[in-house]
Simulated assay, not measured.
Amino acid sequence: MVLLVLVLFPLVFGGWLWYHVDSTINRVSAFPDYDGRPAAGAGTNWLVVGSDSRDGLDPETRENLHVGAADGQRTDTIMIAHVPDNDTPPTLISIPRDSRVPVPGQGRTMINAAFAIGGPQLLAQTVEQATGMRIDHYAEIGFGGFAGLVDAVGGVEMCLEREMHDTQTGQTLQAGCQVLDGEKALTFVRMRYSDATPRSDLDRVANQRRFIGALADEASSFGTLINPFTTYALADSGAAALTMSEADGTGDLLSLAWAMRGISSGGVVTTTVPVTDATAQRWDKEKAGALFESVNSDQPISADLIVE
């Protein structure tokens, strides 16, 4: 009897958890049908968005997370995650939020304006037209959801080479190895006004990729997966915090998470769209085009196209 319970419990729990996650995730129509939409390339492309929306955060939570009280929503993070069909490594590409690109109906402006004006659909169209890559899946998470996800896994260890002090918010992260809870993790991934981030947004997006790798490692660790309480907390927090496209499901999300788990170990190529200067507003057209072409055809990326 005990053996039967030990065998059946993981199956029943796993099946129920799969259904719970799939039925809890918020869904949105993210991909408009428009003339000239890029054809599908090799592999699968995700548009991953970190929104600065404060919706659902009470005043105390906003204060604790140090996110202010701005209305509306913009994109603090824009990434393309590419999962290949062949044996080339997955790729995670950061798009600086101040990149000036053509936004349909708005002329050339900062790319995060697309999300503020037209939500996921306008952002997805803008990214597709700017990169020439068709986006297959969409995932978005806000401030509160991100912090909750970090807390659900018990925090994430990061080793900081030097103190990070944000002159805008007054928040400070000490140098050395430490476990960042949701509040401190949000401070880390948003910081760009600091002596420790001299390249401003370029350093910030590099830190964001670094943290996502550490979070993926923690979420997929043996200790997390064998603990049903942690697994449930992670799945429940993640599902409630995520917004995905209507056609996406739990299987798609797990596929992305599994592909991205190798960020910390170098199993995922991570880069920023090549830019012309530290303002990160103007893309290097030649290098950016070569990067997107390589990724879209599942070809190895030349070292000179990778921006740390």
Rank of each mutant, 00 (worst) to 15 (best):
E163S: 08
Q129P: 00
P90C: 08
T272C: 07
V67W: 02
N207S: 11
G15L: 07
P96Q: 08
T169Y: 06
T243K: 04
L234N: 02
L225D: 08
V273N: 03
K287F: 07
E128W: 02
D203C: 06
G213M: 07
G50P: 01
A81Q: 01
A280Y: 10
R37F: 00
T61F: 04
V101E: 01
T224G: 09
A233P: 03
N207K: 15
G14H: 13
I263C: 03
L173A: 02
G170R: 12
E60T: 13
H165E: 13
A39G: 13
W258M: 11
R261V: 13
E163G: 02
G148M: 09
G119N: 03
L254A: 14
P228M: 01
G266Q: 07
A147M: 05
A219D: 03
D217Y: 09
D136N: 10
T271H: 00
G249R: 01
Q178I: 01
M133Q: 09
R27T: 14
L65C: 09
G107Q: 03
A147Y: 01
D76H: 01
H137R: 15
S220L: 15
A152L: 07
E183R: 15
D136K: 06
T224D: 06
N45K: 10
A30Y: 00
D304W: 03
Q208K: 11
A219S: 13
L4T: 14
V83P: 00
Y193M: 10
L47F: 01
I111T: 08
P10Y: 04
F31C: 05
Y232F: 12
T279R: 14
R199I: 00
D195R: 13
P96C: 06
Q178C: 02
P274W: 14
A214R: 10
I111W: 00
V49Y: 02
I301C: 10
G68Q: 12
S94F: 07
G267I: 06
A206K: 15
M164T: 12
L47Y: 00
V12F: 05
Q281A: 15
G105D: 05
V156D: 00
M244T: 11
F115S: 03
L180K: 01
D195M: 09
D217T: 14
F211W: 02
T61K: 11
D248M: 15
E157A: 11
L65P: 03
A239H: 01
E308T: 13
E128K: 02
V268D: 06
R108P: 02
L291I: 12
T167M: 12
G148L: 08
S194Q: 04
A235Q: 04
S29K: 11
D298V: 11
A219P: 04
D71V: 12
L149T: 10
V268I: 14
M164Y: 05
I93F: 06
E293D: 15
P90R: 10
D58H: 09
E157I: 01
V5M: 13
D304C: 08
T44R: 10
Y232A: 05
D55E: 15
Q121I: 05
E140C: 09
D71Y: 09
A147T: 09
N207V: 03
N45G: 10
A147G: 06
V269Y: 03
F31E: 07
E63K: 14
T126P: 00
V5F: 15
S53N: 04
G170C: 07
